[in-house]
Design a protein around this nucleic acid. Structure first.
Lengths: 274, 274
DNA sequence: GTTCCGCATGAATCGATAG
DNA sequence: ACTATCGATTCATGCGGAA
């Protein structure tokens, strides 16, 4: 099977109209954050943010498969000492459009920006809003299981041979391998709080999020050969990860510089065949 | 200086009216979460939650000092496969009433409720919404500084009680309960993400939140002799912690059983003089 | 007196069943 | 069709008894 990455230059509000309905398995994106300075690229004024995003949200609803998922990475800024409400208003608007607000994951940014303000601490988390078209959607929970918490370290460390056997069969490892390889490897389902560090020293460009972020959601909501889309491609992290993971992808980007940069990166890669 | 704890039996919607305006330094509370069972105590229907809370929010605004802070611990339920929107609607309503929505802290519940469902993971976080009357409020940031490094790592397990006590009093109190590596380390300001486990196996009464939660905010937003209020006292955690920390407190509780239980606990304590 | 392990206990959620 | 109740599922934590 051949994996493709379809890169589109232009405003996603327009370009989305060219895409087929019910064709995308996962939309993962981090749209331009609201900004008071309207002239900056991507600087949507906070008070106009919902109005700006709404038509895009409608198109995204159209192109997503009924079994698909839309993950929106976003966090409101503090303006004049207050958190702005455009994100929570956006949630309400999305529901009006017809989306289901299924879940809100928290991305805990373990190494957030330093800084100090008299009336607030550093902002160390972002929202990952999950929207769906219907209550039943594809979710491959087993693909993102994580090692169990303290239990393994504290309880499994000095086990008797009999206990080890028991754990061994519990975990289902078998193969007579050394149990130490399995110590601490018992897997459980994760929660809706993700602990990821931001990638601080990316060579040239700074991505809005680390690769492990889209990777986690791609594992969770798609399988190989599925289609992943990022309507605000930016530096192309989502697309790169999707391709590496054997998913088809569509990326839309309005800025030629970003678009060309991602084109170069993607071109360099071999076509994935499997 | 003598510290008092004023316990009031009744519905806070009524009893708040008896309190003086501009008298409270910190309101910390965890109101009953919305519930579908309308007849149960505390079972406010999600669709009526904002309407129910709004008049209380107005009274809280009245009694809070201009320099004071209101921390609201709350989390929306998942209903019919969706997150309900009453909490974010409440934020918008609070702003209409006149509150400033200053910040949203995340409480990462390390030991969240177990369970497995086809369409979601375990919910491991709650919101701590910070509201203020004005942009300038009292905030004693130095009181909650934390040591640099992996303070999330758990290394306290093997410490002696004496060590724990010593460190505990040095730093403040067992925030995160992993203070072994805090000793003598360089301290930095924390972020808006708090990592705490719920105290699950408290013998008789189960508190909704661990003591370290109100403790952190009491340290951050009040000084000794200030007044802390909890309009939904419940098992009285906020009041107990406030008294232990040398803050005056007011607790309002509608259920006689809870009220009497807290009265007994508070009565047993000596009056704090300092 | 330690350390180690068994066990109960949660601000949960869904789907099925019953009124 | 819509609402109330129940059982099944699942795991981090801390207490208490045992080794």
């Amino acid at each position: 099977m051949e994996i493709y990455a379809n890169l589109i230059l232009g405003d996603c509000k327009e370009k989305l109209k060219d895409l087929d309905s019910n064709s995308v398995d996962l939309i993962f994106t981090s749209p331009p954050y609201a900004d008071r300075r309207k002239n900056t690229y991507g600087g949507i004024h906070p008070d106009e943010y919902v109005e700006w995003f709404s038509p895009i949200g409608k198109e995204l609803l159209r192109v997503l498969k009924p079994s698909g998922t839309f993950i929106l990475n976003i966090k409101e800024k503090a303006i004049n000492g207050e958190r702005h409400t455009y994100v929570i208003e956006l949630i309400l608007e999305m529901k009006k459009i017809g989306w289901l607000w299924t879940e809100e994951f928290v991305w805990h940014k373990k190494n957030c920006y330093p800084g100090k303000w008299p009336n607030r601490f550093r902002d160390a988390w972002e929202r990952l809003l999950q929207f769906n078209k219907q209550r039943n959607f594809n979710m491959y929970q087993d693909k993102v299981k994580v090692p169990v918490g303290d239990w393994a370290e504290n309880r499994l460390k000095n086990l008797s041979d009999k206990d080890k056997e028991r754990v061994d069969s519990e975990v289902g490892s078998g193969f007579g391998k050394n149990i130490s390889n399995w110590v601490g490897r018992k897997k459980v389902y994760p929660t809706n709080v993700l602990h990821l560090a931001t990638e601080c020293s990316n060579k040239n460009h700074s991505a809005a999020f680390p690769e492990s972020l889209p990777e986690w959601f791609i594992k969770l909501f798609t399988k190989r050969g599925d289609l992943v889309m990022d309507p605000f491609m930016g530096s192309g992290t989502t697309i790169e990860v999707a391709q590496r993971m054997g998913r088809n992808s569509i990326g839309i980007e309005i800025m030629p510089e970003h678009y060309n940069m991602v084109r170069e990166k993607i071109k360099e890669k071999e076509i994935v065949i499997f």
